[in-house]
Design a protein around this nucleic acid. Structure first.
Length: 267
DNA sequence: CAACTAATAT
DNA sequence: AATATTAGTT
């Protein structure tokens, strides 16, 4: 296998996420409790958005909704600090879309958990979150391949609720052939549904990342993108359209806490 | 050793 | 069923 890396690379650089596709979705998965537990500065703590941006405060208390008397194991509910478990991640359609976009932009070949995670740049999203999801997504793709092309596309919500929610880029269904390169089948039609966003996009056409010079040579599939730290928080100010960048934690019937991203006005 | 993937566990 | 965690490879 020979690599003409130089080829895909420049294209890749060129095709970096557009506003409509990836950029504007900078969100946080870090719950207040988590931030505290891990001693993480919540990235928004000094954010230039004076308005509605405060995450709702932590009802830190006991996760178990007062059914058990909680004074058995010594530490009464309050300070397990470092030994806290991360809440289950919930893959919302928005989050999944971002995932798919990232994979699409990377090409199947480079779409591995770490790079996907970096490209998604969702704060708090871990590599294993992505890995797990990727595994499932791949299975989904394989399952799709074996089916008659005439059926299903469009209205089969019974099959894989989540995965059906985002269009599968055509090249995913074929072979991983990163050489011949792919073009984004995505047309920013979202404008039709959200005129406001169109305005925003129209203003910022040519999204790109500020200054991407050259980074490490794409040796055997190992490359690094300096600008893609996921602390890269970018605030999109929109007049009259308050961005809902909030994280909401819910509680399932079992008492497990889960994290859900709110839609930012996309889709 | 770090990261990937498949398998398995919750 | 959806996500996490482990285990075996690369």
């Amino acid at each position: 296998m020979k690599e003409d890396d130089s080829n895909w690379f420049s294209k890749w650089e060129d095709e970096l996420p557009s506003q409509e596709d990836l950029m504007p979705l900078s969100q946080t998965l870090i719950t207040p409790d988590l931030a505290i537990a891990f001693d993480i500065r919540t990235p928004n703590s000094h954010t230039p958005t004076p308005l509605n941006n405060h995450l709702h405060l932590p009802p830190i208390s006991t996760p178990s909704s007062g059914e058990f008397d909680s004074s058995e194991l010594g530490a009464s509910g309050d300070e397990p600090a470092r030994t806290l478990k991360r809440p289950r991640l919930v893959w919302t359609p928005q989050l999944h879309k971002r995932f798919v976009d990232a994979v699409a932009h990377l090409g199947i070949k480079n779409a591995v958990p770490k790079t996907i995670m970096q490209l998604m740049s969702v704060d708090g999203l871990t590599r294993e979150n992505v890995a797990s999801h990727l595994q499932k997504y791949r299975l989904y793709l394989k399952r799709m391949q074996g089916l008659s092309p005439g059926a299903g596309s469009g209205g089969d919500p019974a099959t894989d609720h989540l995965f059906a929610s985002s269009p599968v880029p055509a090249h995913f269904l074929h072979q991983g052939r990163p050489n011949s390169d792919h073009f984004l089948p995505y047309v920013p039609v979202a404008a039709l549904q959200h005129p406001q966003q169109m305005a925003a996009v129209a203003g910022h056409l040519q999204p790109r990342y500020g200054q991407i010079g050259h980074f490490g040579s794409p040796r055997n599939g190992q490359f690094e993108h300096p600008l893609l730290s996921r602390q890269n928080q970018q605030v999109v100010h929109r007049v009259g359209a308050p961005v809902h960048n909030s994280v909401d934690d819910l509680e399932s019937a079992n008492g497990r806490k889960v994290l859900t991203l709110f839609p930012t006005g996309d889709d």
